[in-house]
Design a binder for these strands. Structure first.
Lengths: 225, 225
DNA sequence: ATTACTAGGGAGCGAGTAT
DNA sequence: TATACTCGCTCCCTAGTAA
C-alpha cells in the first residue's frame, strides 16, 4: 500500500484515539468516518496489520485496533514534516552534530576541477575540506533523504589518469545563521542519510570554534526559481 | 484523484515553495522529490491543474507551477486537522456562535419517545430545546462533516398518526468546559455542516447567560471503547 | 532538453455475498 | 448482527516513445 495512503489512514485512526488504546473499530462505522466502503476498511485494516502499523483483534466478532510503535513513529515523522512544510516552505532546516569523517573531503575539495566549478556556480571559493554533520533526529534524516533526491546545482565530475571523480550535487545553505556555504552530495557518497557534508568559504571548525559533538544548524534554501 | 493523494502531493509542492510564488518544476526533478516517475509527475500536475489546485505554465519548454487559492485552503485545512489530531486524539473541539434556529428543536425534544431514550442512553433528561451553534471557521465545518459520518449513540425514530420522527444520532459533549450534554444529528437535518445542535440537562442560554452571537465551546468525546 | 501521450500491469475500490 | 472473500471496474503507476 502506498505510503501516502498509509499515512493518511493512520492519521485518521489516530484521531479516533487508536494511538493511545485499543478502540472498538467496527468496519461499517469506520467506513463512514474514513469515507470509504466497509469492504475497503476491512482491506485497509488488514494491510495495515500485515505491515505492522496496527494491532488488530476480534472481540465478540467486532474489530478492535490500536496503532503500533512503528505506526506511531510514522505518524510523528509525518506530523513533523507537515508542520515544517508550513513553517518553512522552500527551506530545509537541519540540526546535527559535528563529526569527524574519513578525511576524504579535503582531498576532493582541493581538486582544481571541482574548485573552479564551485566558485562559478556557488559564488565562493570553498575551503579545502568538508565539515561532516551527523543527524540524529529521525525527522532530519527523513528530510535529508528527500533532499538528496532533488537535483540542486550540478557540479560535473571528471577523470584524471589515476581515477574518476564523480558528479557532485550542491544546495546553497547557511551555517549557524552566519556563514553562506553549501551542502554537497557526492554521486557515490560513502555516507548514509544521517550525514550532511557541508562546505563554506571559511574553515568552519575554526570560525565557530567547533569540536566533535558540537551542535550545528544548517539551513538549505532551494533554488527552484 | 483521491483527496488523500491530492493533499499529500500539494503538501510536498508547498514544501518546495510553490505556495508563495511560481517555481520552476521540471517533471524529471519533481519525480525524484515526490518519489514517482517523470510520467506520473506529468499526470499528477495535469490533474491538479484541471481540478484547480495549481497554476501551471510552460516557459521555454520547462514547467512552472504555483498553488492556487483553492489549493492553499485545502492545505491549511489539512494542516490544522493534522495538528489537531496530535493534540486531541479522540476529542473533537469546536468553537462557534450561539444562533437562533427555527424553533423545531423544542418541538422534537419534548416528544416523550425521544426523551426516554436520551435519558437511558445519554444518562440525562434533556431540557426541551436545542441550542444552535453556528460554525464559521472552515476547519470546524470540516470536522463537523467528519463527525457526522460516525455512528455515535443511536436514538431510534418512531411514528405517530400525524407524522414520522426520524432516527437521531448523538455524541456526548462538554459545553464550555462545564456542562455535560450532547451534540445531536437528526437523520434529516434541515441544517448544513456549519451548524451544531446541542442538548443538555440544563437550559444552556439561561445557565451561561447566552445571547445570539456569543462564542461557545463544544468538545465532543468519542465513544469507541 | 523538455512534456505528455499510449499501453499494459497492478493496486485500490465497492457490490454482492459467504461465513 | 459482524468480517472478509471474490469479482469486475477504475484509478494509478511506469516504460516506451512522439513531439
Amino acid at each position: 500500500m502506498n505510503i501516502r495512503l498509509i499515512r493518511s489512514y493512520l492519521l485518521d485512526l489516530y484521531k479516533l484515539g487508536a494511538g493511545e488504546k485499543m478502540i472498538k473499530a467496527p468496519t461499517t462505522e469506520l467506513a463512514n468516518f474514513l469515507g470509504v466502503s466497509q469492504q475497503s476498511v476491512s482491506r485497509i485494516l488488514n494491510k495495515l496489520h500485515t505491515q505492522d502499523y496496527i494491532y488488530k483483534e476480534l472481540r465478540n466478532r467486532v474489530l478492535w485496533i490500536r496503532i503500533t510503535e512503528k505506526g506511531l513513529m510514522e505518524i510523528e515523522d509525518y506530523i513533523k514534516y507537515v508542520n515544517d512544510v508550513y513553517v518553512n516552505p522552500g527551506r530545509f532546516v537541519f540540526e546535527g552534530y559535528v563529526s569527524t569523517g574519513l578525511g576524504e573531503g579535503a582531498y576532493y575539495m582541493s581538486r582544481k576541477q571541482y574548485v573552479t566549478q564551485f566558485e562559478s556556480i556557488l559564488g565562493f571559493k570553498p575551503y579545502p575540506g568538508t565539515l561532516n554533520v551527523r543527524l540524529k533526529n529521525p525527522f532530519y534524516i527523513y528530510q535529508n533523504r528527500l533532499l538528496r533526491r532533488l537535483n540542486g546545482y550540478k557540479i560535473k565530475g571528471f577523470r584524471t589518469k589515476e581515477r574518476v571523480f564523480g558528479d557532485v550535487k550542491a544546495f546553497k545553505a547557511i551555517i549557524n545563521d552566519r556563514i553562506d556555504g553549501a551542502v554537497i552530495y557526492a554521486e557515490r557518497s560513502i555516507y548514509g542519510f544521517d550525514m550532511l557534508e557541508v562546505i563554506a568559504p571559511e574553515y568552519l571548525r575554526g570560525f565557530f570554534k567547533l569540536k566533535d559533538g558540537d551542535k550545528i544548524k544548517v539551513v538549505i534554501y532551494l533554488n527552484m526559481e
